[in-house]
Write a protein that binds this DNA or RNA. Structure first.
Lengths: 167, 167
DNA sequence: CTAGTTGCAAATGTTTTGCACAAAC
DNA sequence: GTTTGTGCAAAACATTTGCAACTAG
């Protein structure tokens, strides 16, 4: 009996993302979903979407605002938030609330994964676990509930920050 | 080989809480921890702590403020927040951030449990799973991290709200 | 007495909204 | 030409803080 891999740790730098559509495909999908909803494509929406995609994972509205400002100094915070909301509605982005004040956003529709967050350096490591997925379904079944989504977050000290806790 | 129970669903109404100290014990502990820290016990702190304890689980600052106002109309929001922060520091209360804007608080130090949150009616069901606990440790080990805390949240439709999704 | 606590109002940080002007379809 | 989108400033929230008056130890 083969030993199937149940847990997979994924830690990619922003420039090395797997399982993603190309930026062009992604933007096209955005345009299509906007059209479906009778909404318009605009230069700002494209800029924001592209900047977001380029930045990789776990981006805050503030960070995105900063990035977009670099190329186009004339976007307002409001448009950032409005576009992020749109991208959520178009199911291209998902919103996460880690234990900070602000929300973070990531490209949606990749394989489901969960997060480890280092409490010292803020590093976020992603992982997938089919066992955890299965267990969650089992628990939902026991409760008598239907699951729409779920969230597993581990907090602690990462490899590099272990042993520096008391510094 | 016996079939050990791995998952336990806990759903208590506020008036039927298990594994808790008595309100008096709890308040005494609060007093003791304040003293340790060179801080004072006051009428307000007691009132807030008692109201909190009485209200049961998953209380927001707003709800607690409302409750305290009933008996003593002269507490400010600031004192609610300051006392909640104190209770956290005294490890008598823990703070949770579900996917709402506001934080929710619960009595700390009971057995670790996780939450299912119904997206229709807001009901929160707690459960414990030793398997999930073990898996999380295994994942932390694989990442090379030390875990300080973790969080599992399931979202969906509860028993009573299933089938009413499209109403 | 004196350090710690309170209530208020004002400040904060994040996100949302109203509105007049501008741009897409 | 409508309808939708934008930028700005103001509003809306949840939470925190400064400060003068107050109170527990």
């Amino acid at each position: 009996m083969s030993h199937r891999r149940e847990t997979l740790v994924l830690e990619y730098p922003a420039h090395e993302l797997s399982g993603r559509p190309s930026p062009e495909q992604w933007l096209e999908t955005f345009h299509a979903r906007l059209k479906e909803r009778g909404l318009k494509s605009t230069a700002q929406r494209d800029e924001i979407a592209k900047a977001f995609y380029r930045m990789g994972r776990h981006v805050s509205a503030e960070e995105l605002y900063g990035e977009v400002k670099q190329s186009n100094s004339h976007v307002g915070y409001a448009t950032i938030y409005r576009t992020l909301k749109l991208l959520k509605e178009c199911e291209l982005v998902s919103e996460r609330h880690f234990d900070e004040g602000q929300a973070r956003y990531e490209v949606f529709g990749e394989r489901h994964h969960d997060h480890f967050i280092c409490e010292r350096c803020g590093r976020i490591i992603e992982f997938e676990s089919t066992q955890i997925e299965r267990l969650q379904q089992a628990i939902a079944h026991e409760i008598g509930a239907t699951l729409t989504r779920h969230k597993v977050e581990l907090y602690g000290f990462c490899r590099d920050c272990r042993g520096t806790e008391n510094k």
